[in-house]
């Protein structure tokens, strides 16, 4: 749609900006910038002194942070590699007609509507070796499954939990993409003698490209914010095996009140997300134009 040039439109945007500026984004972010270049002892803000980029150097060299970042990246990539194909497969299997459509949609959406910490709680209840269905079942099968003790178990459980929690997003997006394909495409493909695979490869996948890009970018970014679920399920352990970026940040920030380090870390973290957002935005605006 051709838009009208009108600077007065700013007035319409103003209330939203005011809220975000003051309470949510800009002023708080400025505080972070401010802390990131100062050394503050305890909470004695008056005697803070300027330390330049020292915190940033510290942050980047911090081996624990590097480890957390590595874990985070590995986690995000793996969970995406599972969720996207699985989500597409489920979307392809979803019913297309009748009341079952609504029932399946609602069931699939359920995990998305549960508070994130409750997702952790639910999985804690589900996987405990003494009272959890999965925990008990696996131990009955002779596996020594215990997420409090065994890092591999903890890691895999957090991964499965994330798949449980978020695959539905890909399912819903891919399903919407599939529903938007006109019937003529399928009819033509059938007349052309295309196999089921060829229909998927040449009709469905290209037409889902847009929604899948959105799904990948959103899931990648959101998985970088992962916090509450592993916090409740494993507390980041055993050791630090399931401590991801947000939890590490929360630990040094609110936990240890290490303001400078937390602030520098926040900014690096934020810039990383910013770069991803930029990618997302570029893709979206290009799609909107098409």
């Amino acid at each position: 749609m051709e838009k009208i040039q009108n600077q007065k439109a700013w007035f319409l945007v103003l209330p939203a900006l005011a809220v975000l500026f003051i309470f949510s984004a800009v002023i708080p972010l400025m505080t972070v910038v401010n802390y990131s270049v100062q050394d503050i002892f305890g909470q004695d803000y008056a005697n803070a002194f300027f330390v330049g980029t020292e915190w940033f150097r510290d942050t980047i060299r911090d081996p624990e942070l590097q480890a957390a970042f590595g874990r985070q990246l590995a986690f995000s990539v793996i969970t995406l590699l599972i969720q996207i194909p699985l989500g597409v497969a489920i979307a392809l299997a979803m019913p297309t007609r009748g009341i079952m459509v609504s029932v399946a949609l609602v069931l699939v959406s359920l995990p998305l509507l549960i508070p994130w910490n409750v997702v952790g709680t639910g999985w804690l209840l589900f996987t405990r070796p003494d009272i959890g269905l999965l925990g008990v079942a696996l131990n009955e099968l002779g596996l020594d499954y215990n997420i409090q003790r065994n890092p591999v178990d903890a890691w895999l459980t957090v991964l499965v939990m994330d798949v449980w929690h978020w695959t539905s997003l890909t399912v819903l997006l891919a399903y919407a993409g599939l529903r938007a394909i006109p019937g003529a495409y399928y009819q033509a493909a059938r007349v052309d003698g295309a196999s089921r695979w060829a229909i998927f490869r040449y009709v469905e996948l290209p037409r889902m490209r847009g929604v899948l890009l959105i799904a990948i970018l959103l899931r990648f970014m959101d998985s970088f914010k992962l916090y509450a679920e592993p916090f409740v399920l494993t507390g980041g352990g055993p050791g630090t095996t399931t401590t991801f970026l947000s939890q590490y940040l929360a630990t040094i920030g609110v936990g240890q009140f290490d303001l400078g380090r937390a602030a520098a870390f926040s900014l690096v973290y934020f810039l990383f997300i910013l770069a991803l957002s930029w990618l997302f935005y570029t893709v979206i605006t290009r799609m909107d134009r098409e």
Binding site: P28, L29, V32, F224, A250, Y269, F270, I273, F280
Partner: peptide
């Protein structure tokens, strides 16, 4: 775009401020 970055920002970053 700036709006989008706020949606994407990890809340942990804003915790302290």
């Amino acid at each position: 775009f700036w709006l989008l970055t706020n949606r994407m920002a990890p809340p942990a970053v804003f915790l302290l401020p």
